[in-house]
Design a protein around this nucleic acid. Structure first.
Lengths: 274, 274
DNA sequence: CTTGAGCTTTCCATATTGTGGAATTCATTG
DNA sequence: CAATGAATTCCACAATATGGAAAGCTCAAG
């Protein structure tokens, strides 16, 4: 492949774990695809791996039940091994523990649905949802929903809070995946620019007609990843006049979450005895 | 390493995914270690990988947060990425769905704690626990508890239901791990032999003084792994006279679970639309 | 039934990647 | 402050993972 012309690494280069990294890339992709899964060609295209390489990697993962292949459709999806491995960890992450009371508080106070979303690699993953008291709630996004950063309101808010370079890089790397969600990389870039200036992101048209979403990012800490707090509501409840109030409130919640995390401090969830 | 003397594969040989398989081996080990995690040397010894290889693999996994390293103790444990990937799947496995009503029925009928355990690679993993009505319940084993096959009562029962060759092989491969649990491979072999003859396994001395456990295996199906149904009780409730009744009842439950699984039939949990 | 397009799977020669021995650094203990 | 044992880094080498090519599938349309 490489004509031995100098070390020639593109960007910061590797250790010696190409195949493992590739396997994890595939797993991340599949996680975003959820139960539907993806076909080989699709995986191969999005990861820029040759079909044979992707196939070989998938084979091991399937053999270990880390990935599951539907025998009829040939589609690949995250396998049962993953939830089994997950049992080795306590259910609630540090972030979730710290954030939950504030999610409740926000939902109660604002009356609409509050989502907590975290960055996972190139994706935004919804890890919590709390309903408010207003009788009409936006319930489109499920816990576990995972989409490329830039697609969802939370994704845009998180990108906007990253260094411009990094955000750009992520958008670039997600480019191939955007079409699945009918989004243009170009458009995402512009949206992120705008959100960066304002410090939050308001999506006028949510996934479903007549809904809006407003998202504020929660900076990452030593213990927790970059995250975002999002409010989803029907459009007549997220009006121009109400915008400042909502932003103000959500922002104050992100600050408290951050403070709580700092207090709980250095101990990682696996700091046990021993 | 190998002196190029013939293809020389030991047993059925590989595809081209050594490193990925090794990474998964390590993950399995860490899952069994739970929150405590393991040190590098320990991992390296148990997997027969050189420290440098284990270290390199762990590095990628840590970089991706699939594994987490405690900065103080240097110990490795399953990382937060795993539960996040797990969100891509519905919470309850096919087996668990099918088995749950029968677990309840057994707990209700027998009055003691019923456990459902599955085989995962070289381990026995507890995935469900239902308490009975008797006021003293044995609660030593948590959901998520994971130990090498052969260590727990369920593990012995499952080994006993496998072909002798395979069981022997598993015990061999777990040999290094047994010491951690104060068990001799030799002793496991004998125990499994005995259980094979009887069709179930009764452990006279459970993990905790004064407790007993009796375990019956649930054969694997196309959709579900090998599993076991276990009853845990204080010793005076699992007496010699009661043994036949308990075995009889648990066995009938395993049959019904199996039948239910067969009826639900061919569709894998990821058979969605699309 | 035939053709063809597109997907999946297998094969294999080759160079890149992953390997493990050795050396180095770090931590702990007597 | 040795001395022991663990973690980490380095690097030459060859075994492993790679991707091109070709064979097998599956399905839809003719």
């Amino acid at each position: 492949m490489k004509n031995s012309r100098k070390p020639d690494r593109e960007e910061a280069n590797n250790d010696g774990a190409q195949s493992i990294r590739r396997a994890l890339d595939i797993l991340d992709l599949l996680a975003a695809a959820g139960l539907d899964g993806m076909r080989l060609t699709e995986i191969s295209r999005t990861t820029s791996l040759t079909p044979s390489t992707a196939h070989r990697i998938l084979n091991v993962l399937v053999a270990r039940d880390v990935v599951e292949q539907n025998q009829i459709t040939r589609r690949y999806a995250v396998g049962e091994q993953i939830p089994m491995l997950a049992l080795a960890r306590p259910k609630r992450s540090t972030l979730l523990q710290a954030a939950e009371p504030y999610l409740r508080q926000a939902a109660e106070n604002l009356g609409d649905t509050i989502y907590l979303t975290v960055r996972v690699g190139l994706d935004a993953l919804c890890i919590a949802r709390v309903f408010g008291s207003f009788p009409i709630q936006v319930v489109t996004i499920q816990i576990g929903a995972r989409r490329p950063l830039g697609v969802s309101a939370a994704g845009v808010a998180m990108l906007a809070s990253l260094p411009e370079r990094e955000a750009h890089d992520i958008i670039e790397r997600n480019k191939m995946r955007f079409e699945r969600y009918n989004v243009q990389a170009e458009h995402v870039s512009r949206t992120v620019q705008a959100a960066r200036k304002k410090g939050y992101f308001l999506r006028q048209k949510g996934l479903v007609q007549g809904t809006r979403a407003l998202s504020v990012s929660v900076p990452s800490t030593a213990q927790t990843p970059l995250a975002a707090l999002t409010i989803g509501a029907i459009d007549r409840r997220l009006t121009y006049q109400r915008e400042p109030e909502v932003v103000e409130f959500l922002t104050s919640m992100t600050k408290r979450i951050r403070k709580t995390l700092q207090q709980r401090g250095q101990r990682s969830p696996t700091d046990g005895t021993r």
